[in-house]
C-alpha cells in the first residue's frame, strides 16, 4: 500500500482520487518528502491547465464581498498538536458522559487518521479540537447517522462531524443552526462526502444553548425552513 501511495500525487493533484484514496494520500504526503514536493509541483502544473478564464456575472462580486465581510477568517496555522492531550481535554459534562465519549470517539476516529494532513479544513478541525474550552455534543435524531457538534467560544469556531448521513439532491444542503434565547442563527452549510461523512467548520455565531440541523435549499436560508432532523437532546 505504501508503494502504491507514492504514485498517487499526480492523480491527487488533479482531484482524480476517490474519497478513500484521497484520505489515505492526505495522511501520507505531508510526511513524505517526495510526495510532498510532487504535490506542490503537480498543483502548479494543474493550475496551468486552467486556460479558460470566464468572467463571472457582475453581481457575484458584491455577493462575495458581502459574504466575506461577515465570515471570520481562520487563525494563522497553529502548531501541530498531539492527539492525546486533546482527548483528555474534552471534558464530558456529567449526565451525557457516554454519549459525549462516543461523539468524541467519532470525531477522533474520523479525523485521527488524517493528523498532519494538508487539507486545510482538517488542520483547522484538529486545531479546534485541541482548544482548551472545546465542547463536544452529540445530536439526537432518527436513523443510523451519528452527528456531533464541537465548538469553542475561545476560538470562535464550530465543527459539525457526522457519519452515515444521507446524501441530498444537488439543490439541497444541510444547515446547522445555533439555538439561543434569540432563536436560531445560521451556522454551517454542508453536504456529506460520498461515504456519508461530514467534517465541516464554521464560525461560532454566539453562545449556543443548543443546536439543530435541517435541510435547506442550496445557498441556505436566513431561518430554518425544513424539519429539524438532528438536535440537542432535551
Amino acid at each position: 500500500m505504501t508503494v502504491d501511495l507514492h504514485h498517487l500525487a499526480a492523480a491527487y493533484a488533479l482531484d482524480a482520487l476517490d474519497a478513500d484514496e484521497r484520505a489515505d494520500f492526505e495522511a501520507h504526503f505531508p510526511d513524505c518528502e517526495i510526495c510532498g514536493t510532487e504535490v506542490i509541483e503537480y498543483r502548479e502544473t494543474a493550475a496551468r491547465l486552467a486556460v479558460d478564464p470566464v468572467e463571472p456575472p457582475g453581481h457575484l462580486r458584491g455577493r462575495v464581498l458581502t459574504e466575506i465581510a461577515r465570515t471570520r477568517q481562520l487563525s494563522p496555522r497553529a502548531p501541530v498538536v498531539d492527539i492525546e492531550p486533546r482527548r483528555r481535554r474534552v471534558a464530558p459534562t456529567g449526565f451525557l458522559y457516554g454519549a459525549v465519549a462516543a461523539a468524541t470517539l467519532l470525531i477522533v476516529g474520523l479525523i485521527g487518521f488524517q493528523l498532519g494532513s494538508a487539507s486545510p479544513s482538517d488542520d483547522q478541525l484538529v486545531d479546534l479540537l485541541a482548544t482548551s474550552d472545546i465542547v463536544v455534543e452529540p445530536l439526537a435524531g432518527d436513523g443510523e447517522a451519528a452527528v456531533s457538534v464541537a465548538w469553542s467560544a475561545g476560538s470562535g469556531e464550530v465543527a459539525v462531524v457526522a457519519s452515515g448521513l444521507d446524501q441530498l439532491a444537488g439543490d439541497r444542503v444541510y444547515a446547522l443552526w445555533m439555538l439561543d434565547a434569540g432563536g436560531a442563527t445560521r451556522s454551517v452549510l454542508f453536504r456529506p462526502d460520498d461515504d456519508g461523512t461530514v467534517r465541516e467548520l464554521g464560525e461560532l455565531p454566539g453562545r449556543p444553548t443548543g443546536w439543530g440541523i435541517t435541510v435547506e435549499p442550496a445557498g441556505g436560508s436566513p431561518q430554518p425552513t425544513g424539519e429539524i432532523l438532528f438536535a440537542t437532546a432535551a
Partner: peptide, 21 residues
C-alpha cells in the same frame, strides 16, 4: 450552480487566507 460554487470558493479563500504559505 457554478455561480454558487465560485462564491463558495472565494469565501473559502478568504477563510483560509491567513494560512496561505
Amino acid at each position: 450552480r457554478s455561480e454558487e460554487v465560485t462564491q463558495e470558493v472565494f469565501v473559502e479563500v478568504w477563510r483560509l487566507a491567513p494560512r496561505y504559505e
